[in-house]
Amino acid sequence: MNGKPRGKFHPVYLILLIPYVAFLWVPLYNRIEPEIFGIPFFYWWQLLWIVLTALSIVPVYLYQESQDK
């Protein structure tokens, strides 16, 4: 069996786990309060985390770029 080269592991990859906790641990956000502009917590928390998920990729992207040089 010819295994793949395991990319050197760097702690920056752990950042990518945070969004999975924020989204998949439902009791964390399954409530109404606090509301923003009349939008319940359940909804704005998840809206916010779409953006934060995308941002969590950025440091990993930059790390990989620095490794390529």
């Binding site: 990518l16 969004p19 999975y20 989204f23 998949l24 359940f42 909804y43 998840q46 809206l47 985390w49 779409i50 998920t53 995308a54 969590s56 990729i57 990993v60 992207y61």
Partner: peptide
């Protein structure tokens, strides 16, 4: 209602997988 919103975590969390 709320169960329909599962599309949101779905549509956000697929991107780290895509990236890696």
């Amino acid at each position: 209602g709320a169960p329909g919103f599962f599309a949101v975590p779905y549509a956000a969390l697929m991107y780290p997988v895509l990236f890696l």
